[in-house]
Computed example of a mutant assay.
Amino acid sequence: MKVFICADIEGTAGIVDWEETIRGERGWEEFRELMTLEVLAACEGARAAGATEVVVKDAHDSGRNILVGRLPDYVRVVRSWSGHPDQMMFGIDETFDAAVFTGHHSRAGTEDNPLAHTSNQKISCMYLNGKPASEFTINALCAARYGVPSVFLSGDEGICAEVAGEVPGIVTVETLKGYGNGSNSIAPQRAQKLIREGVERALRQDNKTRMPDVKGPFEVKIEFTNPVTAYQSSWYPGVKTAGPRTITYAADDFFEILRALRFIKG
């Protein structure tokens, strides 16, 4: 069995402030370690379920957060950013049996995490075919393009509830709930235990149906926080202006949506 892990940080147990997510800032060293421990727990769960190879994408900010020396010998790690349209899922392909997501967070415009966002803080809301979309929405569709089911996610309460509606049967672990600029979180050790158990349980299921529909057509709409970013993004071929801060882009093939997002997110 071959498993792909997409690792983010804003849904890591205990996290609450942007400073804790930014390389070199106060608090980042602590939370890069906690992010690493959650990834390690996912790797151990995958191994217990029979995985012979695990590929981890460090998918937060610089792509250089995970303490790679902590990873076991059956793991490969993808760091930094290649520029490929798969972005947070770069490294996945048709040879994988499952996709796992750790440290994930609620989408922009929600209140379930003080660090809620979609891709970056320039976006106030992203929609796919008229429905609000999270980073998971895009990433799960990216995995589905390769025929890979999304089987597990850990993160805040809001994103766990949302993904359950998008991929019925996905196993989730709720790490925290946001209240304004604060959060109420389970202890990191508890989160790591639940992630280890949850990933193993998820991979032992029949996961053939754990994939969103990748049949087009697709339309992505992005509402930016300011009109400047919208104007700049409007110059990508095929992008249409839909308001002072809003653009849209449509395509039949989801890969073309991924390619466009690579350039128009701001």
Rank of each mutant, 00 (worst) to 15 (best):
E19A: 14
K122N: 14
G147M: 06
R259C: 08
L37A: 07
I159F: 00
A242L: 05
A202C: 03
L261R: 04
A191G: 02
Y249L: 00
V77Y: 06
G83W: 01
F90N: 09
A202P: 06
L194F: 10
G50P: 04
A46W: 05
R190N: 12
A187D: 12
S82W: 08
R76M: 12
K221E: 13
G103A: 01
G69R: 06
I186W: 07
S80K: 12
A99Y: 01
V39I: 12
G182T: 14
T102L: 02
R64K: 14
V55N: 07
G243S: 03
E44A: 10
R259I: 05
F152C: 01
L153P: 07
G243D: 04
R23D: 14
E30I: 13
L40A: 10
G180A: 06
T241K: 15
E162G: 01
S62R: 06
H117A: 02
I138T: 08
L203Y: 05
V56C: 05
H117L: 06
Q189E: 15
T118D: 04
L40P: 11
G169T: 08
G238K: 07
W235I: 12
A49R: 04
V3I: 13
A143D: 01
F90P: 01
S80E: 15
A164Y: 08
A49V: 06
C160M: 04
D206C: 08
R190W: 13
H117N: 02
D156W: 02
V16F: 12
I22D: 03
Q232F: 15
D156C: 06
A41F: 09
G178Q: 09
G165C: 13
E29Y: 10
A230V: 01
L34A: 05
R70Q: 11
E256Y: 13
Q121M: 15
G158D: 04
A242K: 09
M126H: 01
A41C: 06
P244D: 11
G198Q: 02
R64Y: 12
E20R: 01
K240W: 09
I159H: 00
T248L: 04
R259Q: 12
I264P: 05
R70W: 13
G216H: 04
Q189A: 15
V151T: 11
G182F: 15
S119C: 14
V77A: 10
G243R: 05
A133W: 06
R79W: 12
G169R: 03
P132H: 02
D112V: 10
L258G: 00
A251L: 10
L34S: 08
G69K: 06
G238R: 02
F218N: 03
I66G: 02
L141W: 07
G24S: 11
S119V: 15
Q205S: 14
S183N: 14
R26N: 11
Y127W: 12
D213N: 14
D73H: 09
G103P: 00
N184E: 15
Y236D: 07
I15W: 03
Q192E: 14
V199D: 03
A191C: 03
P168Y: 02
N181P: 12
N207P: 00
D8E: 04
